[in-house]
Design a protein around this nucleic acid. Structure first.
Lengths: 140, 140
DNA sequence: AGAAATTTGTCCGTATGTATC
DNA sequence: AGATACATACGGACAAATTTC
């Protein structure tokens, strides 16, 4: 059968319906949504259309999907869900190689190396710490 | 926004861009290029157009497509020399927080943290060392 | 430990309707 | 009118990750 699309596309209507269920608590945070196969049956839409609808919610960070497992409601602050976006701070400095680093880089202990450190904080609390070590600039 | 096409069709321009990424090594031989859905988003082109672009590269034997898997760069003759391609080794382990890490993460000294270490070697010699520290997972 | 079932990921081909060059 | 491109939608098939038995 053909596929006209007047006004609002189907996948948006389906996304709206699913979002509604999530916001009303019909599908609580952390809980898996029905599988795509069930949704295709319920909405009598093709799998591609269902997946498009879910993609909308994923874009909105309302749900997350894991391959082979399913799509679940993201356990965030249920109501306002204000995004505390992580902030990163970068520091670069020169350090002296300790025994471990010296062995890895095959340099003498105490040799200069460059350490770049990125601290990522989410609402004040340190979320992640990355340290990158490099040789001191040597030409290729 | 309408979609004019001056001279060169859109799908050719996209094919050129993708070919560029392959030749520069941004997408190395054997590696899957992004799925059609991602490319439609990135280039803001329709799926049909993306598929046309990939068809061009397939025609040129630059890539190959496997049903249900994806499209990957054919590991045939290399374009740009990549003789000494860096290799990475990843190790993940649990560590105890020293005073510095404890202060950053606001945990007690000795608390468990996860350290992920990536060592990148180029022809044997360590090129770069990355250490990523995280809290121990608690959710999910 | 291993096979089967479930579920998502991706591609294939096709189709309709609209819009622009 | 024809070529290009967009957005939407269908159904089918194979691949890969996870869960279940």
């Amino acid at each position: 059968m053909p596929t006209p699309h007047y006004g609002q596309p189907r996948y948006r209507a389906i996304a709206d319906e699913l979002r509604e269920r999530i916001e009303t608590g019909a599908i609580p945070p952390g809980v898996l949504l029905p599988p795509e196969s069930a949704l295709t049956a319920e909405f009598r839409a093709s799998r591609g259309t269902i997946r498009q609808a879910i993609a909308v919610l994923r874009e909105e960070r309302v749900v997350a999907t894991e391959h082979g497992r399913g799509t679940y409601v993201i356990p965030g602050r249920d109501t306002s869900a204000v995004d505390e976006e992580p902030e990163s701070e970068i520091r670069r400095r020169s350090i002296a190689a300790d025994t471990e680093l010296a062995a890895l880089f095959a340099v003498e202990v105490g040799s200069p190396l460059v350490e770049q450190q990125i601290v990522t904080r989410t609402s004040g609390a340190v979320e992640k710490l990355v340290r990158i070590y490099n040789r001191v600039q040597t030409k290729k």
